[in-house]
């Protein structure tokens, strides 16, 4: 179930390997032994009803959430913990280094409101990657142009529309040249007419081979843009595979069917 469907990539160890991941908030088990792999260059979309644990799963990958047991490896390296005579949480510097290789785009954008669009992109390049101001500025301008915002480099987030802010958020994440990009419901906070411009950027990144793990409610987009869809329910992977298969499986998977029916009503 966790094998990639991409012929070439499947023969290697996946870039992101999640095995037996469990996580509880107090008494509530949000993740119950989740297995999931993402190969290099693969786009994997996690769908599922709210409360199914998909966002928590994503947030565990760059250790914004701790996890109780199981493992998450990126390029073979465990994310949050190391084995030092027992399971030990990684130190601040190690975590920062791992997170720098894991880009994340947030539902609520989370741009730094006191910094311009370019400065938002430059911050990590300068303070984490150690680039000079000129290098960072050049990279910021390059990526802002890539998301169609070259002319907004010196605008503050408050001066940008939601769709523009989210595109800056994407530029900020990809400018770090992460091994994998995590997209957490990145269009959910947008007005409907602004969704398209953001998804277009994601589509072009996918076309260039960016490895992505995303959570979305845009089923149509997930079907078109991803190599694989993972359906989560009750903290477990309930179905996974190529989009056509998973969405077709709705006919004999009751929960998936019910879930998709709600979206068909509004999105198809």
């Amino acid at each position: 179930m966790i094998q990639s469907t991409q012929g070439g990539a499947a023969t290697h160890a996946p870039l992101l390997a999640i095995e037996g991941l469990t996580k509880s908030f107090g008494k509530v088990e949000v993740l119950r032994s989740v297995d999931l792999g993402v190969a290099k260059g693969e786009v994997v979309t996690v769908i599922g009803p709210s409360g199914s644990g998909k966002t928590t799963l994503l947030r565990c990958v760059n250790f914004l959430e701790t996890y109780d047991s199981g493992s998450i490896r990126i390029d073979g390296r465990e994310v949050g913990y190391k084995d030092a005579g027992g399971r030990v949480r990684r130190g601040e510097r190690e975590l920062a280094g791992i997170r720098a290789d894991t880009g994340m785009v947030f539902q609520s954008f989370n741009l730094f409101p006191h910094l311009t669009a370019a400065e938002n992109v430059m911050l990590g390049l300068r303070k984490v990657r150690g680039k000079s101001k000129a290098e960072a500025r050049a990279a910021a301008e390059h990526w802002l142009s890539r998301v169609g915002l070259g002319h907004k480099a010196d605008s503050l987030p408050g001066e940008l529309s939601g769709g523009q802010q989210q595109r800056v958020g994407i530029a900020r994440a990809v400018a770090m040249e992460p091994k994998i990009l995590l997209l957490d419901e990145i269009t959910s906070a947008l007005d409907p007419e602004l969704v398209g411009e953001v998804l277009e950027v994601v589509r072009s990144l996918a076309a260039e081979g960016m490895t992505m793990l995303m959570v979305t409610h845009e089923i149509a987009f997930a079907r078109d843009a991803s190599h694989r869809i993972v359906f989560m329910a009750d903290g477990k992977v309930a179905a996974a595979g190529p989009p056509s298969e998973v969405l077709a499986a709705a006919s004999h998977n009751q929960r998936l069917g019910a879930f998709l029916a709600r979206f068909r009503a509004s999105h198809f």
Binding site: R99, D101, M104
Partner: peptide
């Protein structure tokens, strides 16, 4: 300051001290 600010700062790999200082 919304929690998302610290999270976004973490996500680009800033350490605790850098998050406080720059964000």
């Amino acid at each position: 300051i919304p929690a998302g600010q610290a999270e976004a700062a973490k996500a680009i790999g800033l350490t605790f001290a850098a998050r406080l200082r720059y964000v």
